[in-house]
Write a protein that binds this DNA or RNA. Structure first.
Lengths: 354, 354
DNA sequence: CGAGCAATTGGTAACGATACCAAACATTAG
DNA sequence: CTAATGTTTGGTATCGTTACCAATTGCTCG
């Protein structure tokens, strides 16, 4: 037994965090009264309130949220987030947007990196559900292996997809306007008179990559300009690959006069390739026009002229989180799944994101 | 009451996630047996095992980890992380490293953005402790308001600081070698013969900024070269500020011949300022030498020659997480707090991080 | 001064899971 | 065939918290 409340020594050897019973004992009240005080409940004499608060602060008491969330009606206050690559600045910014909205709604985010691996993703989601998250935000790793993301296998937790969609599933999704952005960029190049426009993109198994390629094709179709298939290079996941691909193309007998790079990594590779070519064959080579998907901090510093299709990952995160919270609060209870496409901005002289 | 097990309809209206009792009932066993099966316990007849597993998968049962962690001896499996700015690519990469190590140790991270605000940080930490995280990783927002980060106010959860330290507190800390990196970079410039070296840095209230400035000064001292105080410009938190500051300096009657920029943002600003000046006054102006702290993706594309002091934020995250896990496992139970300084690499021709 | 009412406090049970023990059952040796 | 041993199953209590109700106290008003 502890000494009575006259005992003032700090006694700092908490092998185990103090419980509400410890607080109650020290304050000489019942656990119920202590609970009422600490939950800010009504009908407590100020004297009791002070006694309990004092005891709690002396012991360094923290309410155990896990135990609390066990009681019926209580939620965990957690939102599970799986991202294919946390370290990617794009998703980092998106995560920032999610956190911003979640924090406003007094929720925390619990984050896992799926590393583009659907199995890892499945484990993460299972873990999150085990922790009774109130909802899930997922950047789906692989749309063809996404059974574990189907609403019926989630035990009722709402889910929203961010940045990528999964065709077969009826799930709220927030995308950016890949098709429109690619269309607009390519159209711009065509309007400028270019007829040999290289496409540099990722694997087309990533839906985003597929849609951007589609926008490129659609623009050609609508301008009645044929696509030179040899100028379409997909599968570059990293900058080095893109650099190599474009270097090859520039050596081709029908070289591109302009390049549309479908993401950040490909844009970097394209810049390097163009800069290198230009330093070898000096002024006689005509300038290569470049438009890249994804905004990019140093566009104004690029050694080759660069326009970008900009969009706002933070806003993507915000919208996704808000959509999820609306589902959680039941604000959009019965409504069917919705897909939102965020706008993109063709920036001819980039100045930074919105 | 539910119909007996003959009932095969999916019955998908889970207003409430199924509990182990639901599973037990459906499998016609006691909750204890169900628990044993689902925890992989021994001494269960295969027939029972199958019955329970079948019932569990039919109901979509997930063990409630919150309830589980309530039992004595069980941990939450959570690590709380507060970062001053999640969206910063540097910290995003660091978070990636933390997650990597945490995942290997079968832990999840719960992440909050303190937004450089010590009050928010305090709330986050309180929340994390309430969730019984097994440990905390914090990028401290403000070393002068950090009482809430003292071990004695954390109820026993181990804590490790990443990227920034808090002088008064006896806490494990992982830093990068700011002093050494700044010293090395500045020394290099001095060795090259420069005598007017501008310093562009953040507020010196950020300890990192202070240490980098100190390295700059120490290098001057050891080379017996006086510091021109007007060339020391601190307080630039963003690139625009740095660009303005350096533009001013370049117009000064004693302009710098070289620049040491103490972080990423300042480097970007410096590049812009130098590029702009060079485009105005053409070839007669001598080249400005630039070395920047923090690695930077497009260093090889920079329109002005640039060397960088590189370091690896992912490794910073990994080390921090490992240090925390060691504390959690008691591997370093009684040992005093330790501060680790990760090495930096002066890259004269940048090629990317390790 | 006592009935009537509100304010205050405490006891009990339950949230979901499981450690511990006891009961029931099967198996083998003697 | 019985005792002893091992295997399998279930009951009970508990982790920390709080909703619900009952018990107690203090207060007002007729």
């Amino acid at each position: 037994m502890n000494a009575p409340s006259g005992d003032d020594e700090p006694a700092k050897l908490p092998t185990r965090p103090p419980t509400i019973k410890d607080v109650a004992e020290r304050a000489q009240v019942s656990p119920m009264t202590a609970s009422r005080v600490l939950a800010g409940g009504p009908n407590v004499r100020p004297q009791m309130r002070r006694r309990v608060e004092h005891a709690a602060s002396e012991l360094g008491y923290r309410r155990n949220e896990n135990a609390r969330s066990l009681r019926p009606g209580h939620k965990s206050g957690l939102i599970g987030v799986t991202i294919t690559n946390i370290a990617n600045p794009y998703y980092a910014e998106m995560q920032g947007g999610i956190e911003e909205i979640a924090a406003k709604a007094n929720r925390r985010i619990i984050v896992g990196n799926s590393n583009e691996d659907p199995d890892l993703e499945r484990q993460l989601v299972a873990d999150f559900i085990g922790r009774r998250v109130e909802g899930l935000i997922v950047v789906p790793a692989d749309p063809t292996h996404a059974d574990h993301l189907a609403p019926e296998s989630l035990g009722g937790s709402p889910i929203v997809f961010a940045s990528r969609s999964v065709p077969g599933l009826d799930v709220d999704t927030v995308l950016i306007d890949d098709l429109g952005g690619a269309y607009e960029a390519t159209s711009r190049l065509l309007d400028e008179g270019h007829r040999q426009i290289a496409f540099l993109g990722t694997r087309t198994s990533v839906l985003t990559g597929q849609r951007r390629l589609q926008g490129y094709r659609n623009a050609h179709r609508d301008h009645n300009v044929p696509v030179y298939e040899h100028l379409v290079r997909t599968g570059q996941q990293e900058a080095v690959g893109a650099e190599r691909a474009l270097t090859e193309l520039l050596a081709h007998e029908i070289p591109p006069t302009a390049v549309f790079s479908a993401n950040n990594r490909n844009t970097v590779g394209a810049i390097r390739a163009i800069a290198r070519i230009r330093s070898t064959r000096t002024s006689e080579t005509p300038a290569i026009r470049l438009i890249g998907f994804d905004w990019f901090e140093f566009a104004d510093l690029s050694p080759v002229p660069l326009s970008v299709v900009a969009h706002d990952p933070r806003e993507l995160g915000r919208r996704t989180a808000q959509m999820l919270l609306d589902r959680i609060d039941g604000a959009r209870g019965g409504l069917a799944a919705e897909t939102v496409e965020l706008p993109v901005y063709l920036q001819l002289t980039p100045e930074g994101p919105k």
